[in-house]
Simulated assay, not measured.
Amino acid sequence: MNIDICQLVDLPKINDRRGNLTFVESGRHIPFDIRRVYYLYDVPGGAERGGHAHKKLHQLIIAMSGSFDIHLDDGHSKKVVHMNRSYYGLYVCPMIWREIDNFSSGAVCMVLASDYYEEEDYYREYAEFKKDVNKEAP
């Protein structure tokens, strides 16, 4: 996969004097059905999360509160996306290595995933990921 596929998705934002509302709909705002939702919170200062890639899983990552940086790597190119708005989601396709750091105090990172948890879908070693990326290259 190519890192350029990983893009920010502008989610609907309904403004109201009582508070704003944003929603996400499978197949409408994101190109997959949601099978799992998880979130990271109470991340200690200086800690990193992620540090893996998925073989088949699609994800949408949202900063529900606070901010953090997502480092993306397709084995050939890299980019960093700063997340700090709850009405933007970062679509991450399969075969992209990701690391998340620079969490602000009180940050909450929510992830919508295309499938249930399966350990076999993970690349946990960058060298193995890089080897398989190079196999796929033309």
Rank of each mutant, 00 (worst) to 15 (best):
N2S: 15
I5M: 12
L8F: 09
V9N: 02
V9G: 00
D10E: 15
N20Y: 13
T22W: 00
F23D: 00
V24H: 01
V24N: 01
E25A: 01
G27F: 01
R28L: 08
H29Q: 08
H29E: 03
P31H: 01
F32W: 00
R35C: 11
R36S: 02
R36G: 01
V37D: 07
Y39L: 06
Y41R: 10
V43Q: 08
P44R: 02
G46C: 03
G46R: 01
A47D: 14
R49N: 05
G50L: 09
H54S: 10
H54Q: 11
H54R: 06
K55E: 06
K55S: 10
K55T: 09
H58T: 07
H58I: 04
L60M: 14
I61N: 12
A63T: 05
A63F: 08
L72S: 02
H76P: 12
S77P: 04
K79A: 04
K79Y: 03
K79V: 04
V81M: 11
V81G: 08
Y88T: 11
L90A: 06
Y91N: 08
P94M: 11
P94R: 13
R98V: 07
R98C: 10
E99Y: 11
F103I: 01
S104C: 10
A107C: 15
A107K: 05
V108G: 02
C109G: 08
L112P: 09
A113C: 06
Y116T: 13
Y117T: 05
E120H: 10
Y123R: 07
E125S: 10
Y126T: 01
A127Q: 12
A127K: 15
K130F: 15
K131E: 11
D132H: 08
D132C: 07
E136Y: 09
A137W: 04
